[in-house]
Simulated assay, not measured.
Amino acid sequence: MVSLATNELSISYGEVDIVKDLNLSIPEGKITTMIGPNGCGKSTILKALARLHPSKSGVVYLDGKAIHKESTKAIAKKMAILPQTPEAPNGLTVTELVSYGRFPHQKGFGKLTDKDRQVVRWALQETGMLEFQERPIEALSGGQRQRIWIAMALAQETELLLLDEPTTYLDLAHQLEILQLLEKLNREQGRTIVMVIHDLNHAARFAHHMVALNKGTIMKEGQPEVVMTSVVLQRVFNIDAEIITDPRTNKPICLTYDLLGNEAGQKSRELVHALG
């Protein structure tokens, strides 16, 4: 398996410090979700982990090696990243886009080999998109497009997959579809997956490990039941939340929440307790 960790990592945009002295170790072969308020540094950290954003100081280690010293191809053979709003050139078919994932493995002029075609077909099959292989990207639904981008990442044949809000703009059914696909990839292939995700209940349900961030600092990390607590959510989001255990998954879920100190929040808590 491929390891990913940071040591005293600091990241900035211009003169503004976003993350300072971050020490983070991603559990291998697990799903890690990162939660936190807007602007807390989640996406920035993800980009820095993938060397898409430079660090101000500190080091990101990929398989024990400083990532800034590695070649782009070497990194792409170990780690794939799916940004929040990926864009494809107009006119590409599904197969053409997914075949871009084979770039790290190609030599010379980048002509697809039989092995490349086999991997592309496998990636389409794994994501349930084989029947759409000749369809133009612009003809796909939002959920189908997300599957294609994931297929392209799979075609890289990396053990580590980073995703920035993979369910953005999708309806509930398509959100669940994408998250269950990622869960399957982790369960059946042992891929290490790191996701930035806004929905707290999805973050807890699909994670083995959660990282709660605020102002570029880790407020709490660990198993979902350790992170998804009223106390942690108060510190991270400044909300007053009621947490219960999901009877189907045994994972914590946020039943209701309100702004800290809000009178309506007190009334909702009293109602929840009255209902048992």
Rank of each mutant, 00 (worst) to 15 (best):
E270Q: 13
E188C: 01
R205Q: 14
M152V: 14
A173W: 09
P252C: 05
I18K: 01
V119W: 00
R135I: 14
K20A: 11
V94Y: 03
E221A: 08
R269M: 14
Q106Y: 03
G265Q: 09
T72H: 07
K73H: 06
E165C: 11
G143Y: 03
I18Y: 03
R269H: 15
Q118A: 15
V16E: 14
A5M: 11
T217R: 12
L62R: 13
L4Q: 03
L176F: 12
T229R: 05
I197H: 00
E131D: 11
K69I: 13
S268N: 07
M195D: 02
L130V: 08
Q144S: 15
A241P: 01
L176E: 05
K267S: 09
I67F: 04
T85R: 14
E15M: 08
F132I: 05
R147I: 13
G91I: 11
K77W: 06
R235G: 02
K111I: 12
A173T: 13
L62K: 03
Q106A: 13
V211Q: 01
L154G: 12
N238R: 10
I150T: 09
D240E: 15
N201Y: 07
A153H: 08
E96M: 09
L9P: 00
K56Q: 15
G36I: 13
I81Y: 04
E138Y: 15
E126C: 04
H208P: 02
K73R: 14
E188A: 09
T93K: 15
L260T: 15
V60I: 11
H273E: 04
G222Q: 08
Q223K: 15
K73I: 11
N23Q: 05
K184E: 14
E159T: 13
L4H: 03
G216W: 00
I67Q: 01
P86E: 01
V59Q: 08
L92M: 13
G261R: 09
E165T: 11
S3A: 13
T127W: 00
E96P: 11
R147A: 06
L200Y: 07
S55I: 06
V231M: 01
T33I: 11
M79G: 01
E70Q: 14
L162T: 09
S55R: 14
H105W: 15
Y100C: 15
K47A: 14
V19F: 01
V19Q: 06
K220I: 10
D246L: 11
W149N: 03
T6A: 07
